[in-house]
């Protein structure tokens, strides 16, 4: 297995959503390549100590989102490259909502728009420093 998944039951985020997001991220980042096989529902449930129905639900939704495909008796596999493009959009959605929350919290602390922008720029500098213009 090239990708390792973890879940945090204590966080309020439903476990199946945590799994979906991690699989999508792994596909978008290329840790899980096209055609690569995912662990079986049972194996992953035991590995993470989570309910098998939770894993099955995550796989069903990933299949619906065309990220993976499941063939009976063979297992679940990552779909081809165009799947990865969809996934990248999904990741952007996640990023957008994370940033929206951060901005909302900053505003509720009484910070002005320009201060938030300055702080945002500073955070960008810090975390993207040296990673080049393409963020690679």
């Amino acid at each position: 297995m090239s990708a390792v998944f973890t879940v945090d039951p204590g966080s309020g985020v439903p476990l199946y959503l945590q799994l979906i997001e991690q699989v999508k991220r792994a596909v978008a980042l290329g840790t899980l390549g096209a055609g690569e096989q995912l662990p079986t529902v049972k194996a992953l449930a035991l590995d993470l100590t989570v309910n098998p129905n939770t894993v099955a639900r995550a796989y069903r939704e990933l299949e619906r989102d065309k990220v993976i495909e499941t063939s009976p008796g063979r297992g679940s596999f990552v779909r081809s490259e165009d799947g990865a493009a969809d996934v990248r959009h999904a990741i952007e959605d996640v990023g957008a909502s994370v940033l929206a929350n951060a901005v909302r919290e900053a505003r509720s602390l009484g910070l002005e728009r320009d201060t938030v922008r300055t702080l945002f720029e500073r955070a960008l500098e810090r975390w993207f420093a040296g990673s080049g213009p393409e963020d690679k």
Binding site: P9, T49, P52
Partner: peptide
Amino acid sequence: VLDLIIDAAAGGATVLFSSHQIGQVERAAD
């Protein structure tokens, strides 16, 4: 014990369990 419950459920068994520990329920139960 959690592993056993999950293994049984993966094999198709139905499980009803009580617990004081919310973390256990959060992991094992759907």
